[in-house]
Nucleic acid binder design. Sequence first.
DNA 1: GTGGTCTAGACCACC
DNA 2: GTGGTCTAGACCACC
Lengths: 122, 122, 122, 122
Amino acid sequence: MHFNHGHPIYLQIKEELYRRVVRGNLEPGEKAPSLRDLALELGVNPNTVQRAYHELETEGIFFTRRGQGTFVTKDAVAVSRLRDKLAEAEARTFLQGTLSLGLSGDEIIVLLHELMEEEEGI
Amino acid sequence: MHFNHGHPIYLQIKEELYRRVVRGNLEPGEKAPSLRDLALELGVNPNTVQRAYHELETEGIFFTRRGQGTFVTKDAVAVSRLRDKLAEAEARTFLQGTLSLGLSGDEIIVLLHELMEEEEGI
Amino acid sequence: MHFNHGHPIYLQIKEELYRRVVRGNLEPGEKAPSLRDLALELGVNPNTVQRAYHELETEGIFFTRRGQGTFVTKDAVAVSRLRDKLAEAEARTFLQGTLSLGLSGDEIIVLLHELMEEEEGI
Amino acid sequence: MHFNHGHPIYLQIKEELYRRVVRGNLEPGEKAPSLRDLALELGVNPNTVQRAYHELETEGIFFTRRGQGTFVTKDAVAVSRLRDKLAEAEARTFLQGTLSLGLSGDEIIVLLHELMEEEEGI
DNA sequence: GTGGTCTAGACCACC
DNA sequence: GTGGTCTAGACCACC
């Protein structure tokens, strides 16, 4: 993982963890990597990872069992909501960008269809 | 315009100028702001703006007349190509992000349609 | 290397680097001198060398590895194309000059043959 | 005419006059433009033109009749020699450049033939 | 006024 | 060590 030095690292770690959960790399109920392991993997301070974990817990995505570690919520609906939230954020960014370029809604849809076909072609 | 500390300022200035050209804020053949004026407006060093202008000239979007200033290309086709290129780049980023969240092509299209309708509702 | 005050120094540095690459003084994949070393060698500011390096990178002749330095492309075909491009540019300048002096194509070829033989004679 | 600020202007004016004579824009025995006219045309000081004229006179290309002005030599052979000298200088520069790029004599000749054919094709 | 080049020097990330 | 970015400020040519 590469960090963008314009944003706080703990936010970028949160984003990375969101994606692991939503994609199923981390399944509901599964144990998340230990603070130390993830800090080592990412080359950051464990406190930074801790902050990300703490916020994920506040958001109901992670929960902690004293002495056992941190786990992904078992609430599949919460994971699903998270997926929708992230997807919507990406879509808003995309729409904002393309509309500001002067594309019409139709053009945007056509462009996406083209790229999707191309993607499958490869 | 405010700057994202994660990317070089001159690239962000380029992006901003791209958008002004593509949206028609700067029309084909129109004079772009002088280096010094834009530097003042953005609160950066004229050299930084110069670098953005120079790259835009290399790319055929701007041209300069010595002693007179920098101008947007008169080649409307080049501007159109630029618009397509920028829109495609945004779309690729978006597709990559949403596909990696596990969305299907259909879900992506539906999501966009929903947001577009909402947008008009507001 | 000494500089011709009629052309920007960074362009002259580019030309010099082109020649080193095309002649094989800098081989494909080889590390180019560091910015600071070359700047010292040429007696110019590192920023001036940086500009030359940056343009060579844009043109695909150099590539950089962060923290390690700048390297010549490993693409031997790109180097070959560069050689052709530079040779053609010289030939065009030469043709333009001699044709404008009123020489015929035959005269130009004869003149070159004479000089080549003389060259070997020396 | 554009001046290259790396070389003395009077030398560049000499070059320009050489070419006018060799190409026949200024024919043997013809009156050259007056110092003032040429200075005006080129946007330079008449003294600068004077220096160029003086050297051309020394070289036998121009001669002066008091009160009448400056004239091109009537010696057609001298003009012819000048043409040869200029052509040879161009050829040496070209050979030096292409040989230093690693081209062989054959490659140089082939390249020129290609460009000449292309030129006629247009 | 306009842009183009260059220097000196700072600070950064990556190794 | 390496390259990348940015500033402040100079000086230049062209208008």
